[in-house]
């Protein structure tokens, strides 16, 4: 088995609104898979379907080789889940909640638990009622990471953590990956996804719009270029694949489609290059391109 999660054509409606509209998702064993999408795109709904908390209306779902609804209990012993909005029992302490989740999941590693508490600087004697959002999230993260499981399903696990804790979290995910475990990481934080994920799926309105490695995705998008040449530049704007070009004599800034980069650079050579800076597209730009501009969406639909 090399596929940890396989979802194809899943549909889930709530009343008249369609939360998942033939969504596809494939996560390989041993990879950290980024799961991106704007608010309300269906990330949490997908995760709830994977956990057997919601039942899909149509489509195929397979999780660790089993069926998430039918084999829920057996599968849950092999995975750990951090919800997007961590709610704890107000009158239980953080330590009690961690032990409880661990026990219900089938046991947790005491040494790892204490080590994680130390690293996340979490006081386990406080009642959950007094925890901030970030501290509640730490409880769920510690409980999940201290469990010896094959798959971690993390729904925006760092949205309430400060940058220091975010770094600790990234370190922990790398350790988990080194042990050959699988992680599905839903996130809004691009730097986190870029730093951790092998592959990324981007969803919008309940559909998967992009899926692949980061370099594959980058290939689909544009690089921002700024050049200075010895002689005034001409003929750049007309080249295929060049966008938003601003030519000012011997200076030009523009975006170029990855596929046309080589041809455009050859064109620029004619004017004798003096300086060139290129910035690869960030995941954020990729994301913004899918969601930010109406025209970009229309363009994407044509691809």
């Amino acid at each position: 088995m090399t596929t940890a999660i396989s979802v194809s054509g899943v549909v889930k409606s709530f009343g008249r609104s369609r939360a998942l509209d033939e969504l596809d998702l494939s996560v390989d064993v041993g990879e950290v898979h980024g799961f991106l999408g704007p608010n309300g795109a269906g990330k949490s709904t997908t995760i709830r379907v994977l956990l057997g908390l919601l039942r899909a209306d149509a489509g195929q779902v397979s999780l660790l080789g089993g069926h998430p609804w039918r084999d829920a209990v057996a599968l849950h012993r092999r995975l750990a889940y951090v919800p997007g909005d961590v709610n704890l029992w107000p009158n239980l302490t953080g330590g009690e909640a961690i032990d409880l989740f661990g026990a219900l999941r089938g046991g947790l590693d005491k040494r790892r638990r204490d080590d994680l508490l130390e690293r996340f600087q979490l006081d386990p004697t406080k009642k959950a009622r007094t925890y901030s959002k970030g501290n509640r999230q730490k409880v769920a993260v510690v409980a999940a990471l201290a469990s010896d499981v094959e798959l971690y399903i993390l729904d925006e696990p760092t949205s309430g953590l400060d940058p220091l804790m975010e770094a600790v979290f990234q370190e922990c995910v790398r350790e988990v990956k080194r042990d050959g475990r699988t992680v599905l990481l839903s996130s809004h934080i691009f730097s986190e996804v870029e730093a951790l994920c092998d592959r990324v799926s981007i969803i919008r309105q309940g559909r998967t719009v992009e899926s692949g490695t980061l370099s594959q995705l980058r290939h689909l998008t544009r690089t921002a270029i700024s050049v200075e040449t010895a002689r005034p530049i001409s003929g750049l704007v007309e080249l295929p694949g060049v966008h938003d070009a601003r030519v000012d004599g011997a200076h030009a800034t523009f975006d170029v489609d990855a596929a046309e980069l080589d041809r455009v650079l050859q064109h620029l050579h004619r004017f004798e290059l003096r300086a060139l800076t290129s910035s690869p597209p960030s995941l954020e730009e990729l994301f913004m391109r899918h969601y930010g501009h109406q025209e970009a969406r229309a363009e994407l639909a044509g691809v």
Binding site: H76, P83, F101, L104, G106
Partner: peptide
Amino acid sequence: TGGRAEPTLATGVHR
């Protein structure tokens, strides 16, 4: 409604 059933039922506890 308080969101505590969800993480509990995502463990090895049968409904």
